[in-house]
Design a protein around this nucleic acid. Structure first.
Lengths: 304, 304
DNA sequence: TGCCTCCTTTGCAAAAACGCAAAACGCCTT
DNA sequence: AAGGCGTTTTGCGTTTTTGCAAAGGAGGCA
């Protein structure tokens, strides 16, 4: 086996019985999936699937392989968990600063799980509508949407996340259907207060060319509740969608934004074993939770 | 875990405690190995090794990971074996045609193992100094060094193999040391009979610019025994080297050839389940054996 | 029959990964 | 104390891989 990763692709195709379905799940092009399967077959010297325009069906050789691919899958997923669980025995207090979207929809679950495993640990989340000042020790570490350039700081990228336009079912039912970006004209926008945007990465509506924001707040949570109540249209973090069953994506295919979270710490704090271990668990936990939520969001709403 | 294959690289580095050593074992550049490890660390969000100019040492997080990487390794290696072992219950007779180098040094072990697992199966190896004529049913399937272009045949690449100059210890001791290609002048060449070369891929010496071949045979085995007895210098399949402890590579770094084996069958025979299963086992077995022998050959001889 | 949809496959251009070579670094020996 | 040897790291050109778009088929339905 020259490339273990081909086994991962194989398993997805075996389960979906189709290149295109497996591609969607793996977030890869179907052509790539097909080529990876072909490479594995060549490497193994045996046909794994019976190919047809209706899909991929396992051959006898292929079905023999599934069991071992599943064992490998279990090993790799346990590998990730082995690092997530690295916090046992932490104690004391740790304070995290974060923008309020992250603080509201992501950190609570993640920190709760870490706290569950560490009864003597106190976790504090500081949600702030501005960049946290680590030098003044407003927090032990911070989540940011742009990597800071100045200061003796160490930055680690946590993960990408996606944002889309959304509105409530009720709002959408009360207005003409929105099929193309031009249909947005005349709708009421919900967003940030333009002159209180503390990081250019947050200027979502500006990037989309929206000029007026009739309903504005410096808090993502407030915007979110406006949308939920059917007050208008606005940008929502994908990972927040599962919280609000009544929300639907709008023009999801045409309008899509991607941003990133970064974990920022003092350079000096790198030696603090306790903080390092907490940071690792936080990063792993945030990635896991975000993947879970975005998948939920994607499946939850009908294609908008 | 975005890419299972990074776990394979991780395991090699963990075992060798060095990028360069792992790179040699994996047949990859050390820089690539380092980058793959870095990617895995980023993906997991935790440092796996303590890096120093003396090598890579596992961190606590890294050593936690080893166990799961080993489980994945076991799963993948069993996956390969699951296909190799696919022949149980074969019976009857199967005849394979092959060029005599392959027939002598590779097929015997491979076919013996298959026969071991199939008491009712008779395997016949036809070693021929020419292309096997499958249309006339001289054999059920054949190994070739070039893919045939004509005929209703189905071709499958089996594997690459390497060839190098070699001579016996005794011969080398009796002559001036050979350090550069020019030193070859005046040495006695052992090779094919020029006008009996049945496939241009076999014209090794022609490719190297050798004009006279004082000791020539149409049989690789005969050439091999000449070399073994110290009769001169000639091209030897790497996979034949472990058979002759007295042989040494000459100018291995400077002069190196690569060829490929192909498995050829009748298009009509693809439906014969028995032959297909045998072919799969043959391909897998040849690859496994060749890898084993070339690794032995590489480690056996001192660098030439 | 003819159209429509969903799938795979192929060609091509962009992006990522790779190997090579040089640089940088620490240890060991002379 | 200085130079040699092994290592990792970095920059660069090349190869490989990937995604996209179009083409090619096979079934379903009017």
């Amino acid at each position: 086996m020259d490339n273990w990763d081909d086994l991962r692709i194989f398993l997805a195709v075996a389960r979906d019985e189709s290149l295109s379905a497996a591609g969607r799940r793996l977030r890869m092009d179907a052509a790539t999936v097909g080529r990876r399967v072909a490479r594995l077959e060549e490497s193994l010297g045996a046909p794994l699937f019976a190919k047809s325009p209706q899909g991929y069906a396992l051959t006898e050789a292929g079905s023999r392989l599934v069991r071992f691919a599943e064992e490998a899958e279990q090993a790799t997923s346990q590998a990730s968990e082995a690092l997530v669980g690295r916090t046992e025995g932490l104690s004391g207090q740790i304070r995290i600063g974060a923008p309020d979207g992250c603080a509201s929809f992501l950190l609570p679950q993640v920190c709760a799980r870490i706290a569950d495993r560490n009864p003597d640990l106190d976790v504090q989340i500081v949600a702030l509508p501005r960049v946290v000042n680590l030098s003044r020790r407003e927090a032990d570490m911070a989540i940011a949407v742009s990597p800071p350039s100045a200061g003796r700081l160490v930055v680690q990228k946590v993960t990408d996340y996606r944002l889309h336009l959304a509105a409530s079912d009720a709002y959408l039912a009360a207005h003409a259907p929105i099929a193309v970006p031009e249909d947005l004209k005349g709708h009421r926008a919900v967003g940030y207060i333009p002159d209180m945007i503390f990081d250019k990465e947050l200027d979502y509506l500006g990037e989309l060319g929206v000029e007026r924001v009739p309903l504005a707040s410096n808090s993502v949570a407030v915007q979110f509740h406006w949308l939920r109540q059917g007050a208008g249209l606005g940008i929502v973090h994908d990972f927040a969608m599962p919280t609000a069953p009544g929300l639907r994506f709008v023009l999801r295919e045409q309008i899509s934004l991607t941003r990133s979270f970064y974990l920022v710490r003092h350079a000096d704090d790198r030696r603090l074993e306790r903080q390092t271990r907490f940071a690792e668990a936080l990063v792993a936990g945030m990635r896991e939770e975000l993947t879970r939520l975005e998948l939920l969001a994607e499946q939850g709403g009908p294609p908008g």
